[in-house]
Amino acid sequence: MTDHQPSHTPRSLIVSFYGAYGRGAAGRPAGPLPVAALIRLLGAVGVDAPSVRSAVSRLKRRGLLTSGRTADGAAGYGLSDAARQLLDDGDRRILGRPATRPGRGWLLAVFSVPEEERHKRHLLRSRLSRLGFGTAAPGVWIAPAHVHEETRHTLDRLGLAPYVDLFHGRHLGFEPTAEAVARWWDLDALARRHHAFLEAHEPVLRRWARRRPTPPEEAYRDYLLALDSWRRLPYADPGLPAAVLPTGWPGVRSARVFTALHRRLRDAGETFVAGVLDRGVG
C-alpha cells in the first residue's frame, strides 16, 4: 500500500473516463466510442496518442473493452458486460461512499484453495484486498457488511466463488472492536493516502469555489484527475464505522472534497465530452 498520491497512468485514466462518461456518454446511447475521440479526450489530461492506443489494447486483452463500430462506421471501443458490472458496482462505493451504520455488522470471507491451485489463492487475496477487506486471521478476511453484493459479483466474475464462504456477523470480543480494526487494517497508511488526496485536490476545489462560470474543458480535466485519484480510496478504506476510527479521521474530509468536486465539475465536463464527440475526430 503506497502512502503517496499515485500517478495517473493511461490505463487508469481510461477506466476513469469510461466510468464517468463512457456509459452512454454525454446523453448518448451506450456504444463504442471513436478511437480518435478517445485520443482527444485523454489528450486533455496529458496522455499522448500512442499511450492511449497501447492502454486500450491492454484493456481489450483483459476483457474490459470490446472493439466495434460507431454509428458513423468509425473504429471504436465500448465496455464489455463485465466492465459495465464492475463500474456499476464502483458507482455505489465511489460516488455513494457508504459508511457502515451501527448494527450492520461485518462480512467474513473464509477461503480454502487447494495447493495445486495456489495461483488462485494469490488472486483471491489480491482481490479481497482491493475490495477493502482486512485480514482477521490466515484464510479469514473481514470487511463492513455493505460490501457483500460487490464481493459476490467480483468472486463470481473471476470464478473464485467455489473457494469462498461468506458470513455476516457481529464482533463479540474479546478485544474492543476499535483495537481489533487497527489490527485488521493499516489505519496509518490509509490516513496518509487520504492526506495525499487532500494535498493534491483540496486546492483545486478552493480555486473552483472562487470561479464562475465553469469552462468545460478545464472542468473535465480537473474532474477526471480527481476521480482517478479518488476511486482507489473507497476500496482501500471501505467505509469503516466512525466509532472504530481515530478522532479526526481524514477520510471524512477527503470524501467531502471529492463530493464537492463531483457536484461542481462533472456535468460541465460532460459538456466538453459532448463537444468532442460531436466534432468526431476533434
Score class of each variant (00 low, 15 high):
residue 2 T to G: 12
residue 8 H to K: 15
residue 16 S to Y: 04
residue 19 G to H: 12
residue 20 A to V: 15
residue 22 G to A: 06
residue 26 A to L: 07
residue 38 L to C: 07
residue 40 R to P: 10
residue 43 G to D: 03
residue 58 R to Y: 04
residue 64 L to Q: 06
residue 73 G to L: 04
residue 76 G to F: 03
residue 81 D to Q: 13
residue 83 A to W: 01
residue 87 L to Q: 09
residue 88 D to N: 11
residue 89 D to F: 05
residue 91 D to N: 12
residue 97 R to L: 13
residue 103 G to N: 08
residue 104 R to V: 07
residue 109 A to W: 00
residue 109 A to P: 00
residue 114 P to K: 04
residue 120 K to N: 11
residue 126 S to E: 13
residue 128 L to T: 03
residue 133 F to Y: 04
residue 136 A to L: 04
residue 136 A to C: 00
residue 136 A to Y: 00
residue 140 V to T: 01
residue 144 P to I: 02
residue 146 H to N: 06
residue 147 V to K: 05
residue 147 V to R: 10
residue 150 E to T: 07
residue 155 L to K: 09
residue 156 D to G: 10
residue 157 R to E: 15
residue 157 R to Y: 02
residue 159 G to H: 03
residue 162 P to F: 04
residue 163 Y to L: 02
residue 166 L to R: 13
residue 167 F to Y: 09
residue 167 F to K: 03
residue 172 L to M: 14
residue 174 F to T: 15
residue 175 E to N: 05
residue 179 E to I: 07
residue 179 E to A: 07
residue 179 E to S: 08
residue 181 V to S: 01
residue 184 W to K: 00
residue 185 W to S: 02
residue 195 H to Y: 06
residue 196 A to Q: 01
residue 199 E to H: 10
residue 203 P to S: 14
residue 208 W to E: 02
residue 211 R to W: 09
residue 211 R to G: 05
residue 211 R to A: 12
residue 212 R to Q: 10
residue 213 P to V: 09
residue 218 E to N: 14
residue 220 Y to M: 08
residue 221 R to W: 04
residue 222 D to G: 14
residue 226 A to F: 02
residue 242 A to N: 14
residue 244 V to E: 10
residue 250 P to A: 02
residue 252 V to L: 14
residue 256 R to T: 11
residue 256 R to Y: 11
residue 257 V to G: 01
residue 258 F to H: 10
residue 258 F to C: 05
residue 260 A to Q: 08
residue 261 L to V: 05
residue 265 L to G: 00
residue 267 D to R: 03
residue 269 G to K: 01
residue 273 V to I: 01
residue 277 L to I: 08
residue 282 G to M: 04
